[in-house]
Computed example of a mutant assay.
Amino acid sequence: MIATQYLISLGHRRIAVITGPTNSQSSQARLSGYMATLQKSGISADPHLIKVGDYVSDKAYKAACNLLEMREQDRPTAIFAFNDLVAINVYRAARQHGISLPEQLSIIGFDDVYPAASMCPSLTTIRQPFDLIARQCINLILEAREGKVEQNYFIFPTQLVERESCVSPARP
């Protein structure tokens, strides 16, 4: 929700997503948040702007190419990549299609992996609390060993990390 709301606050209305696997809980939650945020903002979801990337380089790259090969008036002004690896492949596809970042296309990722800050332009992303996630995983393992697992689905707080890859769209 944070990523989509941020892009909307910049003025984007044609926001595409490249998801992870369709059976992934995190991917489903991000897609639900994207759809709910669009609806809350009065923006109709365009099914042509929703692509499955599976968190895999080749599939993410092909999904990005598919979005960038749309007619200019149909092409997204921003892409929410459901993880930073997908975002890296969007950068690659944009370069190969002659689309300048962020002037012609804003990109936001998810995870805040190490290379995100070093990319050019540096990647705006959503940071996950990996230390908190790791501690919870260890607790789950210990609880499972003792036969006391009470909960296996958690929602962790995230944080928007604003960098250079998102700007207001040149065209609405």
Rank of each mutant, 00 (worst) to 15 (best):
I43A: 02
S44Q: 12
A45D: 11
D46E: 06
D46F: 01
P47L: 05
P47W: 09
I50H: 05
K51D: 08
K51P: 01
K51E: 13
Y55S: 06
Y55W: 04
V56M: 15
S57H: 07
D58K: 11
K59I: 13
K59F: 14
Y61A: 04
K62C: 13
K62V: 12
K62Y: 15
A63W: 07
A63S: 11
A63I: 04
N66M: 15
L68H: 00
E69K: 06
R71K: 13
E72I: 05
R75M: 01
R75S: 02
P76T: 00
T77C: 04
T77Q: 02
A78D: 05
I79N: 02
F80I: 06
A81G: 01
A81F: 10
A81T: 00
N83R: 04
N83D: 08
N83M: 09
L85C: 07
L85A: 01
A87I: 00
I88M: 14
N89K: 08
V90D: 00
Y91D: 04
R92M: 10
A94H: 02
Q96R: 11
G98H: 06
I99R: 01
I99H: 03
I99V: 08
S100M: 10
L101Y: 04
L101D: 05
L101W: 07
P102I: 01
S106Q: 07
S106L: 03
I107V: 07
G109S: 03
D112P: 07
V113D: 11
Y114W: 13
A117V: 12
A117I: 09
S118H: 15
P121C: 09
P121V: 03
S122C: 05
S122W: 08
L123S: 06
T124L: 04
I126C: 03
I126G: 00
I126T: 05
Q128W: 10
P129G: 04
P129S: 12
P129I: 07
D131T: 10
I133P: 04
A134N: 14
R135D: 11
C137D: 12
I138E: 08
N139S: 14
L140C: 09
L140E: 01
L140Q: 03
I141G: 13
I141W: 11
E143F: 06
A144W: 08
G147D: 12
K148T: 14
E150M: 11
E150F: 11
Q151K: 08
N152M: 15
N152Y: 13
Y153N: 14
Y153Q: 15
